[in-house]
Computed example of a mutant assay.
Amino acid sequence: MSSQKVAVVTGASQGIGAALVTAYRKLGYAVVANSRTITPADDPLVLTVPGDVAEAGVGTRIVEAGLESFGRIDTVVNNAGVFVAKPFTEYTDADYDHVAGVNLRGFFDLTRRAIAAMVEQGGGHIVTITTTFADHAFSSVPSALASLTKGGLNSVTKSLATEYAARGIRVNAVAPGVIRTPMHPEETHEFLAALHPVGRLGEIDEVVDAVTYLETAAFVTGEILHVDGGQQAGH
């Protein structure tokens, strides 16, 4: 088996995902980068795999493309996610399918195949980007579908961490507050900043730093690391 470590990053074409690709390359990892419309990279150690993780089979295909190109999968960062804020009764069936597809099926399909590979190779690491809204909801930001899906991801992080700890696989999550990314229009920033006790939005590199900390933290598993300016502590 190759000694070149390999990380899979979903939602890799912009924002946190694109920054994670750069960060893992700096750590010396080859990267399997996925998003719906990702284009080929100049770097031979970045394999781009386009596809919508909400669709059955795409997560499996991403992992298998990485195994075929690089021979192993050491880390998966489940970064692809969608957030739709609406009053609960205004969510449509299409909203549910969209949010559950990306947030849950995407995680399930990809992580299931990756853990199977990690068991064979004797270890690995899963990190999932969730949201602090799953722990600390605000009446001013109705986010029931985020809580329903990302809350499940926080919970399964602990479940998988215990299930696979003896086989050398660590499973963690990073739960950000609101991060300054293309997802949030400029005119919403002042309102969103006020949700955090520290009074500002988070920055992409602060989430990336949390993921890279977890990457090297060999004694940390089952952790939901909040990068949220104190939001989950209270307001």
Results as ranks from 00 to 15, higher is better:
D93L: 03
V207G: 03
H98F: 10
Y91V: 04
L192G: 06
G101F: 14
A80K: 13
G168N: 12
L20S: 01
N34P: 04
A134Y: 08
L104K: 10
V6I: 11
P44C: 08
E163T: 15
G17M: 07
E120K: 15
V8F: 01
A41G: 00
A193P: 13
L214N: 04
E223V: 12
A94G: 05
I16H: 12
V84R: 14
F138W: 08
R180S: 11
L110N: 07
G222L: 03
K86F: 06
Y96Q: 11
N34W: 06
Y29Q: 00
T181C: 07
P182S: 09
A134V: 07
Y164A: 10
Y164C: 10
A175Q: 11
V31L: 05
G15H: 10
G81T: 14
H226K: 08
V77D: 03
V141W: 06
A80E: 11
V6G: 05
T128C: 12
A33G: 10
N34K: 12
E203N: 06
R170D: 11
V53K: 01
G222T: 05
P44Q: 12
R105F: 04
V6A: 06
R170C: 12
V208C: 06
Q4M: 15
G17H: 09
A41R: 06
A161R: 15
V21E: 12
S69I: 05
Q231R: 12
Y164T: 11
A117L: 09
S159N: 11
D205L: 11
L145T: 02
V141F: 04
H136F: 00
G124V: 11
E215F: 02
D135T: 03
I62K: 00
P182D: 13
G229V: 09
E90P: 00
S147C: 03
V9G: 05
V8Y: 13
T92A: 00
A30P: 13
I115E: 01
A33L: 09
F138N: 07
G199M: 08
E223D: 09
D135S: 07
G123R: 01
V127T: 08
N78M: 01
I169S: 12
V127Y: 01
Q4R: 15
I115L: 09
N79A: 02
H125A: 02
T75P: 00
E68D: 15
V102G: 00
H125N: 09
R36G: 08
F219L: 11
K150A: 09
V82T: 13
N78S: 07
